[in-house]
């Protein structure tokens, strides 16, 4: 589904990603872990098409398409979804209006008929249950004045509505207490299908107690320095990142 080959990227002339290789198949959940500043969020941003990042080398293939040539909206239409670490507050645009526009634009690009108001509301009610998100919240301006937990739940709700093929969760656990974390993780788990792949970017192992990955990759200094099964996350939790750093230094 997704093949990343020797991906290099920089921001403000500073090289952050120094050659990432990663292969993701439908239905798989990959966790990307690593210490602060290792390039985790950069990888998520580059995949979603954030313009501040300059790709300086390598390639990304998504279902046979050159992802790096596509605009953010084209990537969304192709089935890529980024759950933001810091969801943006947009005063004056309600979540409902925002999502209806987004969903219908994506449908349009796929040659599907737009949903009318009634169809949209029905779908929305159905999906809102997945993450226990309140109707009243969706009628408010997008993320404006939302608590940290509400913002993250809104991200997963949007994922549920847009039904991506590949969801990238960028530090979705940051700033959440354990109850909020559980709700968000349960929402993600309900959205797991044999076709849908998920990349979970996280600093801590605790999210992975709830969203159990198939593979864990450790990103350090812009490279994936270690990959393994889900147990690798537990090892990192126990021993921290220092042994990884030591291993890399020894090379």
């Amino acid at each position: 589904m997704l093949t990343i080959t020797d991906l290099q990227a920089s921001v403000d002339q500073k090289e952050i990603l120094k050659g990432i290789n990663l292969e993701i198949k439908p239905g798989e959940v990959h966790a990307i872990m690593g210490p602060n500043g290792s390039g985790k969020s950069t990888l998520a941003s580059v995949l979603a098409g954030r313009e501040e990042y300059e790709v300086t080398g390598g390639s990304v293939d998504f279902e046979g398409q050159d992802l790096l040539e596509m605009s953010p909206e084209e990537r969304a239409a192709a089935g890529i979804f980024l759950a933001f670490q810091y969801p943006v507050e947009i005063p004056g645009v309600t979540t409902i209006n925002f999502l209806k526009t987004a969903l219908n634009e994506i449908r349009k690009s796929r040659g599907e008929e737009p949903l009318d108001a009634a169809q949209f509301l029905k779908l929305m009610r159905e999906k809102a249950k997945l993450v226990n998100i309140d109707d009243a919240l969706l009628k408010r301006s997008l993320n404006e004045g939302f608590s940290g937990g509400e913002k993250k739940r809104n991200e997963i709700f949007q994922m549920a509505m847009l039904e991506p093929k590949l969801a990238i969760l960028d530090e979705t656990d940051s700033g959440l207490d354990i109850d909020a974390l559980r709700i968000v993780a349960e929402g993600v788990n309900k959205l797991r299908t044999p076709e849908r792949a998920v990349i979970v970017v996280t600093h801590y192992q605790r999210l992975l107690d709830y969203i159990v990955p198939d593979y864990v990759h450790v990103l350090y200094k812009g490279r994936i320095v270690k990959s393994g099964p889900k147990e690798l996350a537990l090892e990192l939790e126990e021993k921290g990142y220092d042994w990884i750093k030591a291993e890399v230094a020894a090379l």
Binding site: S71, P72, L82, P91, F98, T101, A102, E105, S109, L162
Partner: peptide, 19 residues
């Protein structure tokens, strides 16, 4: 943020300005 949800740039700008 809006573009990453599939809203084309021009449309997103209009929505933001309107908001």
């Amino acid at each position: 943020y809006m573009r990453s949800r599939g809203i084309p740039k021009a449309e997103a700008m209009t929505l933001l300005m309107y908001a």
